[in-house]
């Protein structure tokens, strides 16, 4: 029986983040991408066997409060540092996907001590040395879905996620999510030109995960992250698009289990020059 989450509204500076919380053990925070939250997924449940997994919807997304004053993932990063304070967590393992990966990187740059291990899954945030990050706002949502996944047949949860047409309420939420993503990432589009200068500060053990067929954020960005972060390893899944945690569910869960040793995760981070 997979671990089931409970729901909480976590109030940070008066802005409440709708959060799914499940499992037990060391804290692990999951930050979703620009497409918005998509509930408690199997990979969350798998991680919840060893961790207390927090899956918030960012402000402006899903059932969370709005935060129209935010301007970039740097604001989200500051929000989540405060969020950890509110939850009484000195530090947590952070797993971020896409825009959420960018946010995780910004958060780690701001305060590496608040981060245990860092997992960046196809993170935005860096300008690709070759190619471009796909302009997600230029495409209708149905076309975008086709671009996100390399091979829908390998998404075990496809029917749960896309099997039924969205209700009007879900459509409204999708529009709201998209607006917030535009607010946070419009210009410079999906990257922070100053991030590369700060990434070397983050000496935490870091896993960077990518799909070889990612059509949203080019895989070269993974090489850039792995080069700039002193203790990062890049793992590229062949035959996979922008969402390895859905397209390569079992492989990703196995990879994360290897990387996130709870016993070792508790040891202090060594300072590096």
């Amino acid at each position: 029986m997979p671990v089931q989450p409970r729901e909480e509204m976590v109030s940070v500076g008066g802005v409440r983040a709708h959060t799914l919380i499940g499992g037990s053990g060391e804290p692990l925070l999951v930050l979703h991408g620009a497409g918005g939250p998509n509930g408690w997924r199997r990979w969350h449940a798998a991680l919840a066997e060893r961790f207390t997994v927090y899956v918030p919807s960012h402000p402006g997304y899903g059932l969370s409060d709005s935060a129209d004053w935010m301007e970039s993932p740097r604001d989200l990063a500051r929000y989540y540092l405060w969020y950890l304070d509110v939850l009484g967590l000195d530090r947590a393992t952070i797993v971020g996907h896409s825009m959420g990966g960018w946010t995780a990187a910004e958060l780690a740059v701001m305060n590496p001590k608040a981060v245990d291990r860092l997992v960046l899954v196809a993170p935005a945030g860096l300008k690709p040395e070759r190619g471009e990050i796909l302009d997600i706002f230029y495409y209708p949502l149905d076309q975008l879905t086709k671009l996100v996944y390399h091979e829908p047949a390998q998404v075990q949860e496809w029917d749960e996620l896309f099997g039924t047409p969205p209700t009007p309420e879900q459509q409204d939420l999708a529009i709201r999510n998209r607006e917030m993503s535009a607010r946070l990432t419009w210009k410079p589009y999906m990257h922070n030109p100053r991030l590369p200068f700060f990434l070397p500060r983050v000496t935490n053990q870091t896993l960077v995960v990518w799909g070889s067929e990612d059509r949203i954020v080019p895989v070269i960005c993974g090489e850039q992250y792995a080069r700039l972060l002193p203790n990062a390893t890049l793992k590229v899944f062949e035959g996979c698009g922008h969402s390895p945690m859905l397209e390569k569910l079992d492989e990703l869960v196995a990879l994360l289990r290897d990387f996130l040793h709870p016993s070792e995760a508790a040891r202090p981070v060594e300072a590096r020059s």
Partner: peptide, 17 residues
């Protein structure tokens, strides 16, 4: 053309949409 070209995200209020 696609709606996005004429009304990118957030440009119109829900009432406007």
């Amino acid at each position: 053309g696609p709606t996005e070209y004429f009304a990118p995200p957030g440009m119109r209020s829900r009432a406007g949409q």
